[in-house]
């Protein structure tokens, strides 16, 4: 169980590292393409397309990690005024609602991937990219987000701090 959890945590962290690499790639790809253009060479079209796709992968791969880091901004106003015991209940209930949202999107995302494969859909830019290669990010990301939110429902830690204000 312990090893499994560590492997899982490691996987979520790894996804975040890939997301960070995508961020750096945005800078690198643009610098390369502008340099090529000014050297009078046609920049490879995949530089442009890859940075657009990098935005999607970056967001989806990093999102579960951000849940773990409590990096998704939220407002504590009503909840901060509640007594601690009630606060804990509300906090866990909100986390449970987040699990529900994530599960719905993971499920619809899986459906979308199946549809994209069945219809052999392409994303049309400079290249024709099979769409499922991109949409597959949805079910994976939202499933892991559901798991991370679930830890705030059942785990020892709460998602909310109990202090009034904006948190991020």
């Amino acid at each position: 169980m312990h090893t499994l959890r560590r492997a899982y945590d490691g996987f979520v962290t790894l996804m975040a590292i890939v997301a960070g690499a995508m961020l750096v790639w945005l800078m690198v790809s643009i610098v390369i393409s502008v340099t090529m253009r000014n050297a009078g060479v046609q920049p490879w079209a995949w530089l442009f397309t890859s940075s657009e796709y990098a935005l999607l992968y970056m967001t989806m791969l990093g999102a579960p990690w951000l849940v773990r880091e409590k990096g998704h901004v939220h407002i504590e106003l009503v909840t901060a005024a509640l007594p601690p015991a009630t606060q804990a209940v509300v906090s866990r209930a909100v986390a449970a609602a987040c699990v529900l949202v994530s599960v719905i999107l993971a499920w619809k995302g899986a459906e979308l991937v199946a549809t994209n494969i069945a219809r052999s859909d392409y994303d049309v830019r400079a290249y024709f990219t099979p769409k499922w290669i991109l949409t597959i990010a949805f079910p994976i990301s939202f499933t892991l987000m559901a798991v991370e939110f679930a830890r705030f429902v059942f785990g020892p830690e709460l998602m909310h701090s109990g202090e009034a204000g904006l948190h991020e």
């Binding site: 935005l55 999107l105 994303d123």
Partner: peptide, 26 residues
């Protein structure tokens, strides 16, 4: 409608116009 939600999200996130945000932050 929910599938549309995901497709919209896909369209919104793969838009080059968003690229300056992470780079300005960086």
């Amino acid at each position: 409608g929910l599938t549309q939600l995901l497709n919209n999200g896909f369209g919104a996130l793969t838009s080059f116009a968003l690229v300056p945000i992470p780079l300005f932050l960086l």
